[in-house]
Design a protein around this nucleic acid. Structure first.
Lengths: 104, 104
DNA sequence: CCATCATATCAATTTTTTTTGATGGAAAGC
DNA sequence: GCTTTCCATCAAAAAAAATTGATATGATGG
């Protein structure tokens, strides 16, 4: 299946789209480990759960979908799992849309 | 529901994505009416059926999805129904992605 | 080691989407 | 008028996706 279809499918769920927005807007990493410098903006499951009001397995499911589509990268941080938006894949998605549909 | 989610959902089916590609690449309108000047590039159900090898109701269903998402416009032409890609909606989709995810 | 916390995964269920075959309507040609 | 062609829509079935609750894994801190 065409990769753009995969990306579109990942973005086609309201919860996942909202999660992407949250990742894009996250200012500082949640669950910071004291002393660790690299605190890229990102979110962990725990934060997503509380913000979205969803149970853990549901968040986990959607994050897996986003990661498998390549829209999100993940990184264990201590006992937490941090998620980061992968803007590169979004750019590629748009680039492909431009090509496919001769938008420029 | 967010309009980008609607667009993404419409694009998230392989058949619909392929139809969009076909519409984008259509050179001349099929089912031309003799004497009518305005023959914008577009396709009708009949052509989509044969090209895709799908039954009529299935094509009809997917075209309805695309039209309702705003990705495609339709126009009766004689007993045929012509479909045209709506690049404007695609542009808006991408513009919104840019904004939402701070891609530029 | 043990208890706890954060997350992953699984099976069962629910919901949504897609597909199909049938029927009906509208336009075109005879 | 009648027939044919093209398309829309419907109900039922099939397929796919999402949700839930339970259980498992893995790191942390005592």
């Amino acid at each position: 299946m065409n990769n753009n279809v995969k990306i579109a499918k990942a973005l086609s769920d309201p919860i996942r789209y909202k999660i992407m927005l949250m990742l894009a807007q996250s200012e500082a990493g949640c669950c910071p480990i004291p002393g660790v410098e690299d605190q890229r903006p990102g979110l962990c499951n725990c934060e997503l759960m509380t913000e979205l009001g969803l149970i853990q397995s549901r968040v986990s499911y959607h994050m897996k979908e986003l990661v498998e589509a390549g829209l999100v990268t993940e990184e264990p941080r201590g006992k937490w799992k941090m998620y980061f938006i992968n803007t590169k894949s979004l750019r590629q998605f748009m680039e492909q849309l431009n090509q496919d549909f001769a938008l420029r």
